[in-house]
Write a protein that binds this DNA or RNA. Structure first.
Lengths: 193, 193
DNA sequence: ATGCTAATATACCGGTAGGTATAATAGGAG
DNA sequence: CTCCTATTATACCTACCGGTATATTAGCAT
């Protein structure tokens, strides 16, 4: 692991545990066994470090979803594949996803929020696109695609957070196929009721 | 509005917008048109200010829920009353509840998280208690009361966040009885599927 | 008027935040 | 061996952080 990677790793650890604003550059480089100029050499600023961290991790998430989710005429099945890909990523990258959620939930004028916002928006556009592609199967959605996307992802996030709170920090978050299908079913029920 | 209240008000505004760690005492008292010693006179420390703010607001939330929710043999109805009380509080205190969620989602070693954690735990104990009281109606829950409480409140939080993201900052968040009953229905469906 | 207390301001403290000027080091190319 | 570039460290900057010592003000009881 090179020094750039070391910095990203300890930054994630600390941001996840204490929050972006509560962690100083000093603490990050100390934890990585390096000094400040090394960090500034690679990332330019604290914000640059955050952007790099989020950007690289988000790309992985997006690839996971893209590989899984192409609408193929069976919408519940598509949602299942998305949910499965999502939980795999979120479980294997617990710190990253938790940190992204934390940033997203902070005030809109917070620097960290501004850094994730475009990524989350991009992600939601992707999910919304799935609902749009399924318009023929789902019938007229009256422009509620975005609302459905928010509802669906919200259900996934909520489930992730619930499982996380019930799983010790070092243990893996487990969710089997049956449970994921249950979530999709519950969501589809919500749409039609 | 006395000075103590002025400080609490501008603290909430700023914490909500920028996050607890990103706001300095200086900014808070400036916004309130006061000076630092006044804040330290009333609250003793930044953490003391946060505790007072959260404590006072949480008490209001708890009172809302307590007035609404006494299990009376009709569990879905009880959940409806809780949900209704919750949404009324959260909508009328948008900043407060958003800020509480934000703190709760940040890292566990964050000072703000430590400040809300006992309040949220207490709240969850209350909701869990409802599920326990309904054991005769719901059947053997196999110790899943806590999980149900997390799931139910998660659904409420998620709905609140979704509505909030779709409602302009200055407008009121509206949710009619029919929608709330829909959410409860969706949750009950989730339990039995 | 006088003293007492609650409440507020001025001016300051040490510490640390993000960020940088400068120099040293190391490894490969010629 | 020497130069060049990439990388890293020492030591420092200014600004602001949370917090406080001290003085002043205002109202009230005596």
């Amino acid at each position: 692991m090179d020094n750039r990677e070391k910095i990203l790793t300890s930054a994630l650890d600390l941001f996840y545990a204490r929050g972006y604003d509560a962690v100083g550059i000093r603490q990050i480089v100390d934890a990585a066994g390096l000094t400040k100029p090394t960090m500034y050499y690679y990332f330019g600023s604290k914000r640059g470090l955050l952007d790099a961290l989020l950007g690289e991790q988000y790309e992985k998430l997006e690839q996971c979803i893209d590989r899984a989710a192409v609408y193929n005429g069976d919408f519940p099945e598509t949602l299942f594949l998305v949910a499965e890909a999502f939980f795999r990523f979120a479980s294997e990258n617990r710190k990253v996803y938790s940190f992204m959620l934390a940033l997203f939930y902070t005030g809109q004028e917070n620097e960290g929020h501004k850094a994730v916002e475009p990524l989350i928006s991009r992600y939601y556009r992707k999910i919304t696109g799935l609902f749009e592609a399924a318009a023929s199967e789902l019938g007229n959605m009256n422009g509620r695609q975005k609302q459905f996307a928010l509802g669906f992802q919200g259900l996934l996030d909520m489930t992730f957070l619930r499982l996380r709170s019930q799983t010790p920090e070092q243990e893996a978050i487990v969710l089997d196929e049956k449970q994921i299908r249950g979530i999709v079913k519950q969501f589809m029920y919500g749409i039609y009721s």
